[in-house]
Amino acid sequence: MHFDVLFNDFTAYTAGGLVYGAIYALIALGYTMVYGVLQLINFAHSEVFMFGTYAMAWVFVLLHGTEQVQWGLGRAAPILLVSLVAAMLVSGAVALLLERVAYRPLLKKGAPKLICLISAIGASFALSEAMGLRDRFAGWVGLDGKLDNYVSNARNLYANPVDIKPHTFFTVGGYHVSDIDVVIIVAALLMMVALVFFVDKTKFGRGIRAVAQDPESATLMGVNSTRVIQVTFLVGGLMAGAAAMLYMLKIGTTRPNIGFLFGVKAFTAAVMGGIGNLRGALLGGLILGVVENWGSAVFGSDWKDVVSFVLLILILLVRPSGILGEALGKARA
């Protein structure tokens, strides 16, 4: 155990953890919203995120080409904004597709929650494999030559051709906080505030809360519950798309199975904060990101995941419903 490593660079480990935590939190929102409304865990949500990472990288290939260059954040900003929109749209669309194909037919027939869970796991594999096999699909329709930049090395690491170089924004306790770090944390917080406003203050938000509290009564009161479920999936997808773009901004590479680890982590964050609770997802994400970075410092990087899951167990032992433990439906109006 190396507590000295942690304390010597405390700010560095904390800041690095907050950046990753913000990404976890944005993905966790998708899990938590769907759980809040349907009481089921959308295990395919991790692939919604994965599709967003590819959307981001492809926008760069489309607008810039495949030449490897290094840009600052300012130079890349216009394409980044386009790719943010594209990633959110693609992830949102995949989330809607999931709802339509993997959930709605089951929910209509009143299938047990367990069946929906299995359907979600199946959808997760299907989506991840579809991305991994995209070279074959393109080959079947004779497009692989034309779309080579998008489909080659389907299962391998896919790197964004533009490498976005961070610059120091300000310095805290000897750690240089980069402009990219600031963008990620601020963007995540803004998204979160916007989402809380949407759920708490708008008509659609009221519908979501109503269905979360009591689906039958909500329907009787004239709430279109199918529509509400759709919007819930869409909003979760949009948030995952934003997370995907921020992730690519920071890391710059993706692969078809990238969703798995992020899905598990974001799900952990959602449960830790109190699943079904929007503020809990934010808190859980940030805590998870920071604590696993601290754990890497103290025990070594190979203990990172052990630390985060032990933390989850400890928190659930003390507070079985998570830190904030308050369901979506009971959120203050």
Binding site: Y13, I251, S301, D302
Partner: peptide, 12 residues
Amino acid sequence: DQIQVGQTDMSA
């Protein structure tokens, strides 16, 4: 130090 295969965040 030791990392894990598939790890993307190397900040630690």
